[in-house]
Design a protein around this nucleic acid. Sequence first.
DNA 1: GCCCTGATTGTTATTGAATATCAAGTCATC
DNA 2: GATGACTTGATATTCAATAACAATCAGGGC
Lengths: 153, 153
Amino acid sequence: MLKHKHDHNVCIETALEAAQKICEKRETRFTPLRRRVLELVWTKHEPITAYEVLDLLSEGQKRVAPPTVYRALDFLIEEGFVHRIESLNAFVGCSDPEHKHQGHFMICTKCSNVTEMNEASLHSVIERAAKENGYTYENSILEIAGVCANCRN
Amino acid sequence: MLKHKHDHNVCIETALEAAQKICEKRETRFTPLRRRVLELVWTKHEPITAYEVLDLLSEGQKRVAPPTVYRALDFLIEEGFVHRIESLNAFVGCSDPEHKHQGHFMICTKCSNVTEMNEASLHSVIERAAKENGYTYENSILEIAGVCANCRN
DNA sequence: GCCCTGATTGTTATTGAATATCAAGTCATC
DNA sequence: GATGACTTGATATTCAATAACAATCAGGGC
Ligand SMILES: [Zn+2]
Ligand SMILES: [Zn+2]
Ligand SMILES: [Zn+2]
Ligand SMILES: [Zn+2]
């Protein structure tokens, strides 16, 4: 959460190991490419665009093509390791990949830091609103823009 | 709301007249181009993409360029006559343009019909969630996907 | 081992979404 | 009718995502 105050390498390692284990359990293939893309998404807590991932992935080798990145991202999203931030056309690692869910986010307009909210109360309010409007709920995106605590002072 | 059960020309006319009056009051310029783009956005209740607007706008005349459409849309969004649906890269007319707000939507995954929710309760829950996470609220997008009442049977 | 099959990755090309930049036109005001 | 702000036109480019097909890889049955 407070990105300025932790060893981010631990975050990355944790995420990679969790993904590894989940894929073993689900019998899906956590290939070197997919692993590398997930690592790159985690290089910062801030959202990263597909083309930034592409640039990083291409360093020191022949430039990869967009489908390579998008396919890996699709897999990671499908498995719940990564979320897409619609309002930014960008991607961010999920810190709770065990339980599949789609993310609800706060986005700081100053520092681009992103906080994922896992509050059940929010979820239930949203599902109830859907029901009241006659809709059968499938999923939802919630992206709140504001200024985070760090940036306010 | 129930798009199959009303004279949509009335919707369009109402929206255009409302926009006209609001612009007079605010002393902003509701030019023919902007009026025409708003009319095209309202040609269906479903969200419409910028390039669909572009195609319609270009019919029977020299093809207009993307900036023409995007500038008009920017104006209409700024004035609150149109909302952007982030998850669809598309635009939809607002049926309550008097009071500026950003929209919260339900989107039917079968028929693409869109319902704007104006529920104060939702809004307050979202603002409270922001506060609890230490953020100063600026704005938010909420887009719920599901199946509408019409499509369920 | 070898073949078959399905999944993954590579490659080329294209579509779709949005913006940067500068030129030309419009319109009110002095 | 000259000035300056706003609006529209026009050209080019960037960024985002997908289509289509070829090549490669992994595992199972023979
Ligand atoms: Zn970290
Ligand atoms: Zn911040
Ligand atoms: Zn609205
Ligand atoms: Zn429907």
